[in-house]
């Protein structure tokens, strides 16, 4: 089974040379640490920066330089700043190549829920609704089950939706799953995890076609 770092490492393999990438809060933020250093990638943060670098050294934090998770950041040579409207022009205008975000639930038709638990937790959608409604290439990074052990991959989402029919791929601590017109399709198993374990942790139909390889994580 993978931990959060493992999930981030596996997703980093999906990041290709020349991509502009938007990373959500949580596990997605970690992905930046594991992208191959022989390719050129620029990270966009929807609060208004392209060309984000690593976190600053202690003592070099700047209140005017944060990411969408409100964490202090640095910029790399070639970086740029812009206002919120222009930031979402990049997103809705499909200039961002890959979006990686977290989720509470994903359904087999690619719906995602990640912003609200009615009557209990309401933090808001932030930029997630704009991102999922616009991007062609969206990967969800999440644990396979919630704290109660229930599957976060469902036939239909039970929570209020963030977007409909928009997710392409899910990477969890147990598996890599693609969303196809016929539902969830198992692509890879996490190290040491059997197909049966993945099936029993997944609600909704899971297509298993032939031998399922184990993920290769560096």
């Amino acid at each position: 089974m993978l931990d959060k770092i493992g999930i981030a490492k596996r997703i980093a393999k999906e990041v290709k040379d020349g991509y502009y990438v938007n990373l959500g809060i949580g596990i997605p933020t970690l992905v930046a640490n594991f992208v191959r250093d022989d390719i050129e990638v620029e990270f966009q943060s929807e609060n208004g920066v392209l060309g984000m670098g690593p976190f600053p050294l202690e003592g070099e934090e700047d209140a005017d330089l944060i990411n969408a998770g409100k964490q202090t950041i640095t910029t790399l040579p070639g970086a740029s700043f812009f206002d919120s409207a222009l930031s979402f022009s990049m997103i809705r205008g499909q200039h961002v190549d890959l979006t990686i975000l977290g989720a509470m639930e994903v359904s087999e038709n690619g719906d995602i829920a990640n912003w609200k638990i009615p009557g209990f937790m309401v933090k808001g959608m932030g930029g997630a609704m704009d991102l999922v409604a616009s991007a062609d290439n969206i990967i969800v990074a999440m644990m396979h089950t919630n704290k109660k052990g229930m599957s976060k991959l469902l036939e239909r989402c039970s929570l209020p939706l963030t977007g409909v029919g928009c997710i392409n791929k899910i990477v969890t601590n147990l598996a890599v799953i693609e969303i196809t017109p016929d539902g969830f399709k198992l692509l890879e198993r996490a190290p040491g995890i059997s197909v049966e374990e993945i099936v029993s942790s997944t609600d909704g139909h899971l297509i298993i076609d032939g031998d399922i390889p184990e993920m290769i994580i560096d």
Binding site: A85, S87, W115, V122, G126, G127, A133
Partner: peptide, 29 residues
């Protein structure tokens, strides 16, 4: 609660004399 890009565009539209606009954000929600 409204999507962040929609919030920004509702400001920009007010600034620019555009009364309304279509966005994909939030469709189906």
């Amino acid at each position: 609660l409204i999507p962040q890009g929609t919030l920004a565009e509702k400001c920009r539209s007010a600034q620019s004399g555009i009364p309304a606009f279509y966005t994909p954000a939030g469709f189906g929600t």
